[in-house]
Nucleic acid binder design. Sequence first.
DNA 1: AGAATTCACTGAACCGGATAAGTTGACGAG
DNA 2: CTCGTCAACTTATCCGGTTCAGTGAATTCT
Lengths: 337, 337
Amino acid sequence: MKRPTIADIARRAGVSKGAVSYALNGQPGVSEATRQRIVAIAQEIGFNPNSAARALSGASARAVGLTLCRPARILSIEPFFMGLISGFEAELAARSYALTLQVVSTPEQEVEVYRRWWGERRIDGVIVTDLRENDVRIPVLQQLQLPAVVIGGPGDTGKIAQVWSDDAGAITETVRYLVALGHRRIARVGGLPDLLHTRTRTRAFEDVCTSLGLNEAVTMPSDYTGEEGGRATRRLLIGADRPTAIIYDNDVMAIAGLAVAQEMGLAVPGDLSIVAWDDSPLCSLVHPPLTALSRDIAEYGAHAARELLAAIDGKQVGNVEAGTAHLTPRGSTAPPR
Amino acid sequence: MKRPTIADIARRAGVSKGAVSYALNGQPGVSEATRQRIVAIAQEIGFNPNSAARALSGASARAVGLTLCRPARILSIEPFFMGLISGFEAELAARSYALTLQVVSTPEQEVEVYRRWWGERRIDGVIVTDLRENDVRIPVLQQLQLPAVVIGGPGDTGKIAQVWSDDAGAITETVRYLVALGHRRIARVGGLPDLLHTRTRTRAFEDVCTSLGLNEAVTMPSDYTGEEGGRATRRLLIGADRPTAIIYDNDVMAIAGLAVAQEMGLAVPGDLSIVAWDDSPLCSLVHPPLTALSRDIAEYGAHAARELLAAIDGKQVGNVEAGTAHLTPRGSTAPPR
DNA sequence: AGAATTCACTGAACCGGATAAGTTGACGAG
DNA sequence: CTCGTCAACTTATCCGGTTCAGTGAATTCT
């Protein structure tokens, strides 16, 4: 089947290619009657502008890029990224932008992908996740002047827009809640230590523990996998002064932690309270259902997409807070016995 | 920053645009010495061919499309699709094809997306998941002559390539195993009833139960969500003749089913054995760990991507079996008490 | 030696849109 | 009645690659 082009439309409408282009793009230069005739013909023959031709002459490729930097086995189980993608899509599809995805394994590879995409003019902008301290991607994006929105801050991204959630506030609220229940020994199983939001959480955790007079604020670093989360939990629970409550940086690790507690004969929440960060349907499925820090991840993603589209349109965008988590108490938290 | 073009390279090398194109694409028409000089210059200035220009003149857009047709809340929690995507990516990235993603909510929308992508010449081929009976997408893809690979069969897809796993064999093996353990009342919580592979599983389940002389083979339809899976489990377990084993069409529903059993005071595996289809790390995390039908989903996806790339290259591709699930016994199955 | 072939490369057309610059014809003002 | 203005187009050029039809020189063949 041959794809229809504006030349086909022009022929059928008895006008020039230029007129068709003006008509379909809502530009001035054609009469309303002609415009409607052209639009009707385009509809009828099912015309879609060739994105390559459009990208070649005009500016926009009408596509944005997203790289995912996690091993496959984590990607598949972590609900976070899929939620984010769903959110992006809702916004992008509404403005008929395409989403181009690439899975990488290191930030350096990610930089390579950005450079290639930019060189290929394949995308108009990127969404950057997992901000790190002194992130190598930031200077490259600035140098390429590639519109971008960074998720995972707040951090130092120069003029690049950010969408972030107030993790420090969320963890402070959580610790206060646990202390109010009577807990004094609270530990945390953290995410990848390199990520900026992990550091933010760790610092906030330490600060609030200090200010509430808790003697120590142990954070076991981990990598978001259930395996590691379970291992970290085991290490926390075999100590003499084992914690009575643990906060996990994602839901998968929290579920693994729950399994470890049960395996060690500890009652949840009687002997151990558990809080999961990021609420997915999984948290309500296990027994007891997990108290979680819920946030609307899809909306978070949608917000980022809106900011990115604004940046691509040349609007000035800055630093936006969105999708801060709030505590959803369920059966996994209670006063310590 | 200005993007380098072949004209820039041509100028620096003192040759014509055409020569550069031949050199970089490994075409004959330039001497080896010149080719190396040109390649070196391209490397040095970090040249990437403009994908739009390439797609416009040549044939290939060097991109393939994937649509995901599930509500956001299922997508985020279902490890299957992310596993599939990881697998695709591994193959696509190796041949520097991009993956374009679109989330839709109905097969009709999916058809629209295919038409648009085709018209825009945005992609060279698509991967089609969730094959249905009399699938509306198949005739459209044939009409557009859009290279495609279908996952979720086997089914009738005409000349379009398929990659499928032997679900019938897997469920037969599972039922035989449960029967060998001593189970006589085996039920199943199925996936979306419209999907062809759900039907395949249901029919195979019924067949094997009949051939083994089990009186009934109840399949409760569901939608892959934990909620529905839990509900279906509850309905199965409140009956007088409650099953002693349940097979779930995905891992999320199996975990939900486990929670329901525990909530109802049934011991797993003592009172109820549970088998999950598709093994994710989640299955090993819960307590007891779930016996599962494991398959390498990423490899399944990689296989599909390879077939698609072959189809795009104009090679004849047919009907390939890949990634059939095999039973991985864990703690959730045992002889009935 | 002269013709034929091969090699290495150039120049120009082309893909399908966007868009700046030029060309009509109608209309209103002076 | 003529000039200027404006709407409604057309024409031509450009984007950055690919590719085909030359072209001149070197090599091979007879």
